[in-house]
């Protein structure tokens, strides 16, 4: 359960990856710094040592320009090899937007991203339904809760074959879905054509998570809301529980 804010537990240590074309690295880092129980450092894409970290975040942006496919080249960076090992050892890995695309290309999460159905970049606040509140990234939310976070992408149209989808659904790996403000998962509420309105998924083990919307953009009421704080709070709780801090 959530540690009391009064206990002086050591902070959860976040690493925020910088690929040369990342552009949400500072936003994500700044958001992390607003949590009393967290500290963040940047991870240059050529770094390979992650052993001081509890959670690695792949932020939004255009990793290597993304001219071929989003995230296609980033997966071959030295850092991604280290991230693969980090994840295999149970470390928490979260990809936001472009970071999600990189995790898909790297095979750390199943499926692939296509261009948005309407072929346009979309930047807008959307409603998301929390489908699984048992993951290390969403435990502060309730199942069925509707949260608001912005999307900002050109390739967020999630695809996976039928078998893969059935497996995702059966294992509770679909974590977030696009929905209307009342929580109904409808075609109209699907901004990009994603299969089954999928906005975020995790791996089978639950320690690797990708989401297209940007939680770091909704961590401050002044600039759009606070619904994204739950993601970071969840990670902090999980880290504390795992390390018995």
């Amino acid at each position: 359960m959530a540690a009391s804010p009064h206990t002086a537990a050591p902070p959860a240590r976040f690493g925020v990856v910088i690929f040369p074309g990342s552009n949400c690295d500072a936003d994500t880092h700044d958001a992390i710094e607003t949590f009393a129980g967290a500290e963040g450092r940047y991870l240059w894409h050529k770094e390979t040592r992650l052993d001081d970290l509890d959670c690695v975040i792949l932020p939004g942006g255009f990793s290597y320009g993304d001219y071929l496919r989003s995230g296609a080249i980033a997966r071959f960076s030295p850092l991604m090899e280290a991230v693969r090992r980090f994840a295999a050892e149970g470390g928490l890995v979260m990809g936001i937007c472009n970071g999600f695309q990189v995790l898909l290309e790297a095979g750390l999460l199943p499926g692939a991203m296509q261009q948005n159905e309407k072929l346009k970049f979309i930047c807008r606040l959307v409603s998301l339904k929390v489908e699984n509140d048992q993951t290390p990234f969403t435990r502060r939310y309730r199942q069925g809760q509707v949260i608001q976070a912005p999307i900002a992408h050109h390739e967020g149209n999630y695809f996976i074959d039928e078998e893969g989808l059935a497996e995702l659904e059966a294992n509770g790996q679909v974590v977030l879905r696009y929905c209307d403000p009342e929580g109904e998962v409808t075609q109209e509420a699907n901004p990009n054509g994603s299969l089954a309105n999928i906005a975020g998924i995790c791996n089978r083990e639950g320690n690797v998570f990708g989401m297209m919307p940007h939680p770091e953009r909704v961590c401050d009421a002044l600039v759009g809301g606070t619904d994204g704080r739950g993601v970071f709070d969840s990670i902090i709780d999980s880290v504390r529980e795992r390390s018995g801090r």
Binding site: C24, D30, A31, F121, I122, C123, A152, H214
Partner: peptide
């Protein structure tokens, strides 16, 4: 138009597009 622009990156937009002027906080 403005939904095709990433108008939120850098997380400083205290007012979103559509109004009379944009306002950015200074962190």
């Amino acid at each position: 138009v403005y939904e095709q622009y990433d108008h939120m990156v850098q997380t400083d937009n205290a007012l979103w597009p559509g109004g009379d002027a944009a306002v950015l906080r200074i962190k």
